[in-house]
Computed example of a mutant assay.
Amino acid sequence: MKGLKKKRRIQVIAVAVVALALSTGLIGYAMRDGINFFRSPSQVMAEPPRPEETFRIGGLVEDGSLQRGQGETIRFNVTDGGATVPVVFTGVLPDLFEENQGMIGTGKYVGGVFEASEILAKHDESYMPKEVVDALKEQGVYQEPES
């Protein structure tokens, strides 16, 4: 009787380990296209990714590099101080997007140019949406941020 309980316990543990390994493998397989790795411009220049790989790049928009083309096509350079990567984006840029400001872009690095499908503008910790500022002013509790 003791031998049967021990054997059953070992079987349950073995099945649990196999199920855990299988579920971990399936989760990894399902997420392989949904994971966007972040890279700095220096990392992109040191080891250029494959053209079909989607990733995120972040840094500062280089001063004097912003060029608006035909339609909604925009070209600019993103830098981290060590390297610069040219970026092309077709679409509407966020309101906070400007030169010498932080940005994060999602896209692919093709032919030496990062082709962005999405651009996010970074802001500092003192940023507040206009609606929030207006509401605080109405309540009389708004204080101007110190520069």
Score class of each variant (00 low, 15 high):
residue 139 Q to K: 15
residue 59 G to E: 08
residue 76 F to A: 13
residue 131 E to W: 02
residue 71 G to C: 00
residue 70 Q to A: 14
residue 73 T to N: 03
residue 121 A to M: 14
residue 141 V to D: 00
residue 91 G to Q: 07
residue 65 S to P: 12
residue 110 V to M: 06
residue 136 L to T: 00
residue 56 R to F: 08
residue 56 R to P: 00
residue 63 D to R: 13
residue 63 D to N: 13
residue 127 Y to F: 12
residue 68 R to W: 10
residue 139 Q to A: 13
residue 64 G to Q: 14
residue 110 V to L: 00
residue 132 V to R: 06
residue 62 E to K: 14
residue 134 D to I: 02
residue 142 Y to F: 15
residue 113 V to K: 03
residue 55 F to D: 06
residue 109 Y to L: 09
residue 81 G to I: 02
residue 66 L to Y: 13
residue 144 E to P: 00
residue 142 Y to G: 02
residue 106 T to L: 12
residue 119 I to M: 15
residue 122 K to S: 12
residue 104 I to A: 14
residue 81 G to P: 12
residue 57 I to V: 15
residue 86 P to Y: 01
residue 66 L to T: 06
residue 116 A to F: 06
residue 86 P to G: 06
residue 138 E to P: 01
residue 104 I to M: 15
residue 57 I to A: 11
residue 143 Q to N: 05
residue 132 V to S: 02
residue 112 G to T: 07
residue 134 D to W: 01
residue 63 D to E: 15
residue 134 D to N: 08
residue 57 I to R: 03
residue 129 P to E: 02
residue 80 D to I: 10
residue 120 L to M: 14
residue 62 E to I: 11
residue 69 G to E: 12
residue 99 E to S: 04
residue 129 P to K: 01
residue 101 Q to A: 13
residue 95 D to L: 13
residue 70 Q to I: 13
residue 72 E to Y: 08
residue 132 V to D: 06
residue 110 V to E: 10
residue 67 Q to P: 06
residue 85 V to G: 09
residue 81 G to H: 05
residue 137 K to P: 10
residue 75 R to I: 02
residue 62 E to D: 13
residue 65 S to F: 08
residue 87 V to K: 04
residue 84 T to G: 10
residue 55 F to N: 03
residue 55 F to W: 02
residue 129 P to R: 01
residue 96 L to V: 03
residue 113 V to G: 04
residue 104 I to D: 11
residue 126 S to W: 09
residue 98 E to Y: 07
residue 118 E to G: 00
residue 136 L to N: 01
residue 59 G to D: 11
residue 64 G to L: 13
residue 55 F to M: 11
residue 67 Q to N: 14
residue 62 E to P: 12
residue 93 L to H: 06
residue 95 D to V: 08
residue 107 G to A: 11
residue 119 I to K: 09
residue 69 G to I: 02
residue 85 V to Y: 10
residue 60 L to K: 12
residue 107 G to E: 01
residue 108 K to Q: 15
residue 95 D to I: 12
residue 99 E to Y: 05
